[in-house]
Nucleic acid binder design. Structure first.
Length: 421
RNA sequence: GGGGAGAUUCCAGAGCGGCCAAAUGGGACGGACUGUAAAUCCGUUGUUGUAAUGACUUCGAAGGUUCGAAUCCUUCUCUCCCCA
């Protein structure tokens, strides 16, 4: 059996841990948990990095718990946030919890004997606790001085922080305490921004129970240019196929920076050290990215989703018009499932007077939100139809692929599959 | 309760009666170069277009003053700071 801490170390996934953590893990099978707040209906690849901690924990023989923050999600974690957030309403939270739970189930083994994964929701123990009880049980044990010294709070002192968000660490601390007492969980993990919240928990456990609990964090993923990792084209990369299609997801990994590759391979794949180090030396970086993208798309989505994403990518980026025409229509529609599709009618097409109208209003502003934008982009040479650059003067005489499709390209990487029928 | 500062285009942040659709920076988007990379360079970044020193809508909200307001006045809403 591999050693958990060693495994994290060589993967560069260990940011910090409390003294004695390693000894505890070596001593016995240890239960550890990570919390996920239901702030959205899907987890994103930033969460995936911490999920991997749980995966490794289980693979090295320990027992992973995934906590869904039904209660903490109602409060809002001030960590890393520069301002107070709006509450999500309960309906949305409920929905998000269900969705996230489903996603988490994909990554962990819930049927592996003693170290089977388990899922808990902190709403289950918070719903019964009253304010007075909470103050007596939790508040009494921690000083304001201690709470204020936390980084997440310090950063907000200037701009303002509500009592509610200030209290967040108490809730998370109580989670840890509750899990320690009731589930024998001795370790809490998370991103490095969670250190303060986690240690509030170990502190609470120490003071209330004289117990020893441990904290372990992983570095927050950043891109080589210092930016937050996991954003793409203005949005998060979600694990939910309805929010980020497998094609987009696959493309995201294909487009990561070369310099980030070593880090990404270590954090997101389960490949062993030799394999990864061999990839480090590989000169053809795109080949490595294809492997990375394949591994992740297959694991997060499925083998067939990967196959489709791959086919779509090859056809869009490398295919010729002949390739399009040679592919069965049914197959085309299938593999372009993740590519934005737009449908317009014959008459709409016929009545389109200019290419500017076509790219904006006729295609329901899905390609360009305004005529001005379309015009601008045309001028800049950023639009192709059926792989040919077009300009504002180009007339609407296009040859349809398979008799009824047009392939519109905005920039190099944004494709639209327009059906006229 | 008293005193002060502020709300500007995606964000930060200038402008403080006409030259303001609004500086600058960031972001975003496009182009060139490449490898569907990074870096770099160039361009775009309210809508509309008879492309024009054009029209229209924008500078927290509503009114007002003025030939003319993001800029002045009144009321309102919100935010922050200091004192109690």
């Amino acid at each position: 059996m591999k050693n958990f801490v060693e495994e994290l170390k060589w993967r560069g996934m260990l940011h910090d841990m409390t003294p004695g953590t390693e000894a505890q893990l070596n001593k016995e099978m240890t239960a550890g948990y990570i919390g996920f707040d239901p702030t959205a209906s899907s987890l994103h690849i930033g969460n995936l990095a911490t999920i991997m901690l749980l995966v490794h924990l289980q693979r090295t023989g320990h027992k992973p718990f995934a906590l869904v923050g039904g209660a903490t999600g109602m409060i809002g974690d001030p960590s890393g946030k520069s301002e107070e957030r709006k509450f999500l309403d309960e309906e949305v939270l409920k929905h998000n919890q269900t969705c996230i739970k489903k996603q988490l189930e994909k990554f962990l083994d819930f049927d592996s004997g003693a170290n089977s994964a388990e899922m808990v929701n902190n709403y289950d123990w918070f719903k019964e606790i009253g304010f007075l009880q909470f103050l007596r049980e939790v508040g009494k044990h921690l000083t304001i001085n201690y709470m204020i010294s936390k980084d997440s709070v310090q950063k907000r002192l200037e701009t303002g922080i509500s009592f509610t968000e200030f209290s967040y660490q108490l809730l998370q601390g109580y989670d840890f305490y509750w899990l320690y007492k009731n589930k024998n969980i001795k370790l809490q993990m998370g991103g490095s921004d969670q250190w303060g919240n986690i240690t509030t928990g170990t502190e609470l456990i120490r003071r209330k129970e004289s117990g020893e609990a441990f904290a372990l964090t992983t570095p927050l993923l950043t891109r080589s240019d210092g930016q937050k990792f996991g954003k793409s084209e203005g949005g998060n990369v979600w694990l939910d196929a309805n929010m980020t299609s497998p094609y987009k997801f696959y493309q995201f990994w294909l487009n990561v920076a070369d310099d980030d590759l070593p880090k990404l391979l270590r954090v997101f794949t389960l490949w062993d050290r030799e394999t990864i180090e061999a990839f480090d030396k590989e000169a053809d970086k795109n080949k490595v990215k294809r492997e990375l993208a394949k591994d992740l798309t297959t694991r997060i989505h499925s083998e067939s989703d990967y196959q489709q994403a791959l086919k779509a990518s090859e056809l869009l980026f490398k295919g010729t018009l002949a390739d399009f025409n040679a592919t069965e229509e049914r197959i085309l529609n299938e593999i372009f499932e993740g590519v934005p599709q737009i449908e317009i009618s014959q008459s709409e097409y016929k009545n389109t007077s200019s290419i500017v109208d076509f790219l904006s209003v006729v295609t329901q502003n899905q390609i360009f939100t305004s005529k001005g934008e379309a015009r601008r982009m045309l001028k800049e040479g950023g639009v192709s139809i059926n792989k040919e650059k077009v300009s504002e003067a180009t007339s609407m005489q296009f040859e349809f692929l398979k008799g009824k499709y047009l392939l519109v390209q905005k920039g190099k990487k944004n494709y639209f599959w327009v059906k006229i029928g």
